[in-house]
Design a protein around this nucleic acid. Structure first.
Lengths: 142, 142
DNA sequence: GTAACTGCAAAATATTTGCATCCTT
DNA sequence: AAGGATGCAAATATTTTGCAGTTAC
């Protein structure tokens, strides 16, 4: 299993068939630096010099489309994004992810080390992707 | 296990300590009629005579706060709401729900009959609630 | 050089708030 | 009667779109 952080920002972008641009490098770097998931607003602010709001929207959309980062569903409307640690660059993410949302510090983390057990669906349903969102108290807050 | 649909709209509202009002009855009735989850816009339209947008926001918020309906996380920003079939009126929902989003018809259903297997978190994490969202093709579309 | 990406302005949507009025208990 | 709920108007916030200028390959 290859760890995604061993790649440079440039490599990663190329691997995902994206042109290498300043905004993309800055935004991707943010994800590499941060263990927790980022919401749109976080990205706009934290990225050193401010990146245009519209560019952030478009960049995130592109990243998600190309499979570089998954978007994490949350029950409270705020979409978050986070790199998962495993290398999924061959075009296929795992078909499931476990994310943890801390109710105290509000941080979201991708728990790559946790396995999602098999879930049996009623007949007729065909599953493609499983997202698991666990909320509770994280390691730092407990 | 008590099935939620055996209750009348009025009973349900009372059980959840909510005043019985027209808007609430109409909106709750929608959920009782529909197996699939509803997004905000659905509710505004489908409710017979249109309900004021603001009232819909406030009513949904109230329902979620009181535990009458859970909100379903989705990766694509659109929050959805759906009654789950089991009676959770004693103030405690199950700590997990399985929802299924069909990639074809876009409908979301709550799969009460599916069990979420135990998931072991790394030490230090304390779990409160598990949401599982499975996407794929539903029974009707396959 | 060409196609793709950015940034600004503006449009379109979505959500929240204040407040006067009406309804439930 | 009193507190809660509604509906309208308006304030905010969020997301999308168009387009001209710039950049990556």
């Amino acid at each position: 299993m290859t760890h995604i952080k061993q790649y440079s920002v440039n490599d990663l972008l190329k691997r995902f068939q994206l042109n290498v641009t300043d905004s993309r490098k800055k935004i991707l770097q943010l994800f590499l630096n941060q263990p927790e998931a980022l919401a749109h607003a976080d990205i706009e602010n934290k990225a050193g010099e401010k990146i245009d709001r519209v560019t952030v929207y478009r960049t995130l959309q592109t990243f998600v489309d190309k499979g570089l980062i998954p978007s994490i569903p949350t029950a409270d409307n705020s979409i978050r994004y986070a790199l998962c640690k495993d290398d999924c660059s061959e075009g296929h993410h795992h078909d499931h992810h476990v994310h943890f949302v801390c109710e105290q510090c509000e941080k979201t983390a991708c728990l790559d080390e946790v396995n999602v057990p098999e879930i049996n669906l009623p007949s007729g349903f065909k599953k493609e992707k499983i997202e698991v969102v666990i909320s509770g108290i994280c390691k730092e807050c407990s």
